[in-house]
Design a protein around this nucleic acid. Structure first.
Lengths: 241, 241
DNA sequence: AGCCCATTACGTAGGACTAATTCAAGCCCT
DNA sequence: AGGGCTTGAATTAGTCCTACGTAATGGGCT
């Protein structure tokens, strides 16, 4: 995807990272550096660099006389794009997708409101163009083209918000939307209502109507949440009273 | 604060990280591993481990035959707690504080709404206790005690939301609140209206009133934003029309 | 202009030594 | 005799060092 194999230590991470985030090693598990080095057939230097990276993601903790200890999931840097990808590729992908979608539902409406105030003329034009592109690809099994414009649309709004924290969530949105199209069951054509909402959001931003942009975006993200509920009912298995 | 000096490479990071995030090396700057190792009086191995960590934060990129290249700020992992701390300690602290506060204003209301639905009885009790603790420390220059309860209050709500992404923002909130109390000019006693809002949020969550919890929390975060505007008017110097 | 090659800095390997932490054996005190 | 404290030995990560591999760059040659 992004950086597949930036050196030997990266190769090791591509295996170890997913294994840890998948819960293959329960919290508290102890790994030993030279044992791992042997297993992956790399030198200790390389293995140590890999461990340092895992450590910076708070996936593991390295203690003398003990080894490399796997930390509980609550400690993980769940905002690290690498960690997100690893988890999305793993078993609890549904839960992860839900977490990310809820995050979207919190952030994107506010981002849209800010975009309505801050967006430059060029950004407004680009956003509108994306919305029109979505319309153009909304019928006739053009899912790939639709996805492309959809991702660009949301990414542009997050950037136009002027908030760097929001802007950095573009990758997350892309991951979620791409996941919906590729992995989950995607209806043949996107929901026409959703397409219309995107066009209206573009309008609102263009007109500088922050409140309307916010409300419309909220409708979009709430739709995404409902869609998730249909595919995988109940994030936590609540006994439907 | 969290892990000051987990080995030699950590010592190096404590100096290099802040330097890079402070913009001391403009994007595209080239550092050489050996040179850095000499400067910090550590071996190349240690230096390489430090570089690997910086690389995983997307602060730098390491290329053969070239060196360690500083990446533009747009590429940085701004959600990494370490990066956040480095930036908060640096020169553009005000801008950073604003970004984080805007993020709070997006996330916390939604988190509060979810908490109203998901929180256990124990969590409700703890949240209420914190709110009462804030009241108890709201008068008479008891800022430290107030801060302690304030942080715990928001952290509990983020956790009670049941969303791991929200829960991990507890550190961010702590950093922001602590910053307000310690670094910025803090009025002798906290705003009484804010204290009341916290108590009411606790009520709403206890009663399971998601909408009310959300609106009240929104008032809190909007207050925080206004407070920022007073201290450092206009994140981007907009000519007040 | 295009190709080749020497330079250069990172990448990898592996051995030697240090230091810190755990665990247990042994000691002392009660 | 039992419990708690001290001490020391074993273990594993941490650090340093040296050598060699490798790829990208930039200059020089054709």
């Amino acid at each position: 995807m992004s950086t597949p194999g930036r050196g030997l230590h990266g190769r090791v991470l591509d295996t170890l990272g997913p294994a840890i985030t998948a819960g293959e090693y329960p919290p508290g598990s102890v790994l030993r550096t030279d044992e791992l080095a042997q297993r992956f057939e790399v030198s200790r230097s390389v293995m140590r660099e890999a461990v340092r990276v895992l450590e910076s993601m708070h996936l593991v903790e390295s203690r003398r006389r003990v080894g490399v200890i796997v930390r509980p999931a609550a400690a993980w840097n769940v905002y690290d794009p690498q960690v997100i990808r690893w988890r999305l590729a793993g078993a609890d992908r549904p839960r992860q997708l839900r977490s990310l979608t809820v995050l979207r539902s919190a952030v994107e409406p506010v981002a849209a409101a800010l975009a309505a105030t801050h967006a430059t003329a060029e950004q407004c034009a680009a956003i509108t163009e994306c919305a029109l592109g979505m319309v153009a690809h909304s019928r006739g099994h053009k899912l790939e083209g639709y996805l492309l414009h959809d991702v660009a649309f949301h990414r542009l709004i997050l950037t136009a918000s002027g908030n760097e924290m929001f802007a950095r969530l573009g990758d997350v949105v892309e991951e979620v939307l791409a996941g919906r199209t590729h992995h989950e069951v995607m209806f043949d054509d996107p929901d026409p209502a959703a397409v219309t909402l995107h066009v209206q959001v573009a309008e609102a931003i263009r007109e500088g109507d922050a409140t309307r942009a916010e409300h419309l975006t909220r409708e979009i993200t709430e739709g995404a949440l409902k869609e998730l509920d249909i595919l995988a009912p109940n994030g936590r298995p609540a006994t439907t009273g």
